[in-house]
Amino acid sequence: MDKERLLFKLNWFYSFELNQVDLYTSQSSSTKDDYISLAFERIAYIEQQHVDNIADNIKELGGKPTMLGDMIAPIVGKTVGKILGLSGIENLLKINILLEQKAMQDYKDLIHAIRGRCDDKVVKILQSNLIDEDLHAAWFHNQLLELKE
């Protein structure tokens, strides 16, 4: 994968993760359950770490994090978070699982495409983000199971 394509992909993740920060922040403030609200807050914090790490990678590769992501992703994240909050906690968790699964698949695809052809530091950061996304999806799934009990 050439440098321009890698920067494009990293900027996609940058925008996606920015969206996730605002999505989970919005869900945290609109959820009445204190434990779930705190969990969304923590997940938003972790997603912000992803944003920061990806931005650093983009800069180290000589690129700039997309301004479009900076402007649009937060608006979309907040709006979708509020709308999903109205649909009930069960639907909210199901949608969050789908979003996390999408992120996981995209991370896996990029890791596969660049492993051995790119700086190991970039691969390790992507793998770390993938692990976090997997943990988020598992937590959401466990909450769904608890709600059904």
Rank of each mutant, 00 (worst) to 15 (best):
K9V: 11
A73V: 00
I111Q: 03
A137E: 05
Q48Y: 12
A73L: 01
V122P: 02
I46H: 15
N129K: 09
R117A: 14
A55D: 00
L145H: 05
Q143P: 08
E17W: 01
S29N: 06
I58K: 01
G81S: 12
E90V: 10
I95D: 15
D22T: 08
E47Q: 04
A137C: 03
Y45F: 15
I58S: 02
L93T: 00
L61P: 05
A73K: 00
L126V: 03
E17L: 03
S128E: 15
I83Q: 12
W139T: 07
K9T: 10
G63M: 03
L7G: 08
N19A: 14
W139Y: 14
Y107F: 13
R5V: 10
I58F: 01
S26R: 06
S128G: 05
R42F: 11
Q105F: 13
L110Y: 01
K108H: 15
Y107T: 01
A44Y: 03
E47K: 06
E4M: 09
G85Q: 03
S29W: 14
M71Q: 14
K82L: 13
R42K: 06
L130A: 12
D134K: 08
F16E: 14
D2A: 11
V80Q: 13
L144D: 01
A55V: 01
H112I: 15
S30T: 15
E47S: 12
N96E: 14
R117K: 11
I43K: 07
